[in-house]
Design a protein around this nucleic acid. Sequence first.
RNA 1: GCCGGAGUGGCGGAAUUGGUAGACGCGUCGGAUUCAAAAUCCGAUGGCUUUGCGGUCGUGCGGGUUCGAUUCCCGCCUCCGGUACCA
Length: 861
Amino acid sequence: MSEYQPSKIEPKWQAFWEEKKTFKAEIDKSKEKYYVLDMFPYPSGNGLHVGHVENYAGSDIFARYKMAKGFNVLHPMGWDSFGLPTEQYALKTGIHPKEITETNINVFKKQLKNLGLGYDWDRELRTSDPDYYKWTQWIFLQLYNRNLAYIAETPVNWCPELGTVLANEEVQDGKSEVGGFPVIRKPMRQWMLRITEYADRLLDDLDLLDWPESLKEMQRNWIGKSLGAEVDFKIDPDSLDTQANIRVYTTRPDTLFGATYMVLSPEHALVNLITSEEQKAAVETYIKTAATKSDRARSDDSKEKTGVFTGAYAINPVNDTKIPIWIADYVLASYGTGAIMAVPAHDVRDYAFAKKFDLPIIQVVSGGNIEEEAYTGDGLLMNSGLIDGLAVPEAKAKISAWLQEEGLGQKAVNYKLRDWLFSRQRYWGEPFPIILKEDGTHAALPEEMLPLCLPEVEDYKPNAAGEPPLSRAIDWVNAPENGKRETNTMPQWAGSCWYYLRFLDPDNTKMVIDPEKEKYWMPVDLYVGGTEHAVLHLLYARFWHKVLYDCGVVTTKEPFQRIVNQGMILGIAYEYYEEAETKKVLSWKDLSDDLSTLKRTVHADDVRWVVEGDMRKAFHPDHDIELLPLTEKMSKSRGNVVNPDDVIAEFGADTLRMYVMFMGPFEQSKPWDTKSVTGVSRFVNRIWRLVCEGAGLSDKIADGEMDKDTLRVLHKTIKRVSEDTENLRFNTAIAAMMECVNHLYKIDSVPTECVETLTKLLAPYAPHLSEELWERLGHKESIIDAGWPTYNEAFLAVDTIELGVQVMGKVRGTIQIAPDASEEVAVAAAKENETIIPHLEGKTIRRIIYKEGRILNFVVS
RNA sequence: GCCGGAGUGGCGGAAUUGGUAGACGCGUCGGAUUCAAAAUCCGAUGGCUUUGCGGUCGUGCGGGUUCGAUUCCCGCCUCCGGUACCA
C-alpha cells in the first residue's frame, strides 16, 4: 500500500479504538476531569448531514486534544429519540416508532463511527428507552411534588395539522416550528410547569456562565423581565353600580398625567361588566373575531390597530380626569394585568391607536415632536402636577412613592416568560406518571411503579372522541383502581432536559444519578451545538437543573459552564431563471422588470465551468447562460445538500473532518464548497507521502538532529497549534500545520523526532492518519497516550528579522536586523538602505519612532 | 422597529496589546516531469501604472484621533441571525 488509502486505514483504526476501549472514561481522582458534550441528535430518517459533522468533529478534536494534555475526558453520545417525525412516519407506514427509531439510530451510529469520533459508547443512551424515561418520569414527580406541575384549562396553541398543542417556544410567526403548519388558539386542559417561579434565577445565573453574549441576550429577552408599577384606576360610578378598579401595569408611571384612555384586552374579566347597552353589540362582535383569530392573524394586523369603545369611563387617579375605556387586541391578556393605561404621547402603539380613533394626546415629557410621532425618549416632565420639571428617572421614583402612600399602586415586576406548556396529544413520548381520579383530583404514581411504560396501540391517531392516542389503550388507561391514567405525553424537550446527567451514570437502576459521580463530573465543561437551541432546550434544561439542585440531586447551580455554537454550514446552488410563459431559460443578466420569471437552481455538481482569464464562470449544463451562485441554508428543497457519506467515500473521514474545520472560524457560518476540499485532501496526501513509502517509512525520515530552521518551524507550529486548538480556532491551527509540512518538503531529510511531534499535533484533527503514521514510526500504543508536545521558547528565536521602515507612516522599505537591535543600529541601517534614502533626502528628521522588532518610523518635514 | 454579529483579492479566509494588510487554502498563469494526459513537484498571483527600480490607490461609505488605523471614536449603508403590539 503505497498510496494514501483512507478506505483501508480508517476502518482499521476505528476497530482498534473500539476494541481497546480507547475512549472509555472512568472516575480517576488523580486526574483533572473534563466533560465535553455534544447536543445529541434526533435520529431522523435523513441521517447525518454536514452540520452534524461540524458540531461533532469540533468537539472531538477538542476532546482528543484535552485527552492528550492529560485530562480525564468524558465525551459521550446518545439519542434524543422521542419525537414527532418518527410518529408521523409510523402513521404513514404502520411501522412501530420503536422500530423506526432503532433503524435510524443504527444508521446514525454507523455514520458517527465512520467519522472516527471518539465517544465512550458504553454510556450510550436513548430518551425513548424505559430505563431512561423511568427517570424522566421520576424528575417529573419531583416537580409535581414541589407544586411546579399543574393542570390548567387555558387557551393553548393548537396545531390542527399535527393534532397537538405546542409550547409558545415552538410557535414561530403563528406556525409550528416542526412542519410550519398553522396554529390557532384553543382552550384545553393541559399540564403546565411553573418555570416562571424560576425566572429570576434563570436570569441572574446567566452571569455565572461562559456563554456567547448573544446567546445570553436571547435568554434574557425571552425571560423579558421589566420593572414598573401597578396602578389602580377606579371605574367611573356612572359606568358601574358597584365599586371596582382596573389594575394596570406600566413601566412608565412617570407618564400617568398623560394617560388619556384605557385599554382592556378582549379577554379581560371586567369587559362584560362595564360595557354599556349601546356598545354591547359592537363589543361582542369584536371579542368574537379576536377569539377566533390566530396569533398569526393578530400579528399580521399589527400595523393597523383595531378596537372598540366599551361605553365606560375610568378615573385617572392623579388628576381625577374621566377617561374612556376601550378594548383592543393589541393588549395581551397574558401579560401584566391584561389592561393598560394608554399614554399616546409617549408610546408608539398608543399613539397609533389614538390617531386612528381620534383620542386626546397630552404631552407630559418634553422633547420630540408630538404632532409627528410618539416621543419615548428622556426629558423633563410637564403638565404633571407634583412631578413637573423632574427628569424621567426622578419622576418615576417620586410618583411611585406617592402612589404607594395613597394606596393607589405599588412597584411591580413582570416577565414575558410564561409557564411551560408541558403536555402533548401524541403517542411517541413519555407517559405522565399520574392518575386522574374520579373526583377530579389527580395523584402521583408511586415511585416503585416507575417506569410507566408506553402501552401498545393499534393506531397512533387520536381516538374517535378526539382524545390522545394513548386513550386507545383502554386496559392501560383503566388499570388504576380509583381512576384513569393521564393520556397526554410529555414533549420532546423532557428527555433532553437532563441527559447530560444520565451520561454520568447510565446504568443506575436505584437512583437517577450516584452523587459521587455527579460531584466528580459536573458541570459540563464544554457544550457544543447549534444556536437553534438557544432558548428552548437550554432554558428548559437549566430550569430542570435548578429544580434538581433544590432537590439535592445536583450540586452545581448551572449545568453547562461553557457553550460554543458551531456556525451553520451553508450550501451553494447556482441560480437561473425561467420565463413564466415561454419556459425560456434566462440568466440573471437577462432579467428586467417587465419579465415575469421563476427562479430555478442547478446543483453545484452539475455546473459547467468556463475559464475566462483568471476567473471561472459557472454555466448551465445544457444552455449557454451564466449562473449566479446562491449561498443558503442547506435543505432538500433548495437542492444544495451535501451528504457526508459521499465525501468520506471520495476523500476519507480525516479529510472531511479537516475540511469542515478549515473552511473558516468554528462559530461562523460558512459556505460548503466541494471544490475546495481538494486543498485539504492534498495536504493529507502530502503528509502521507512525506512519511510513508510502501508498507513502511519513507527514506526521507531518518534519525538525526534537526537543523536550526526546522527546529524553529516545528516549535512555532507546536505553539500555534496548541494555542489555536485551545481556543477552538481550528482553521488557523490547520494552516499552521500546512506551513510546517511545506517547510519539511523543502529539506532533504526529516528527523524522526520532528515527524513524531507533528503527528501528535495532527492526531486530534486526522486521528486515523495519525495512528497509522504513529504505528509506522514504531509505536505500539495509541497516539492518544503519547501526550501533547510542548514548545521551547528558546528555539523560536531568530537571528535576523525583516523590519518595516516607514517614512511618515508609509512603508518605504525593509531592513534585515537583529530582533533586539538598538535604535541606533536600526536607524543607521535604514539610512543606508537604498530604497529609503530617496525618501529622507532633503528632509529634516523631526522624530524617530522605534518599536523593537515591530517598526521604525521617521517623521520628517 | 429593537437586540446580537459581520462587511478584507476572482473565492473561503489570516493579521498577537494600533506597528510591513492579504498567512493558509481554492482558482488562475508559468515552468519541471510525461509520448501524452492525470497526478505530482517548483514558482508567480490585490487594482492601476512602469521595460525595470519604483510609484500610487486599496480592509462597506463619510468624518475624526494618531508618527502610524482592518484594529480606537463619531455618523451612515448593506447583509446575516434572533425577536416582535410584552405596556
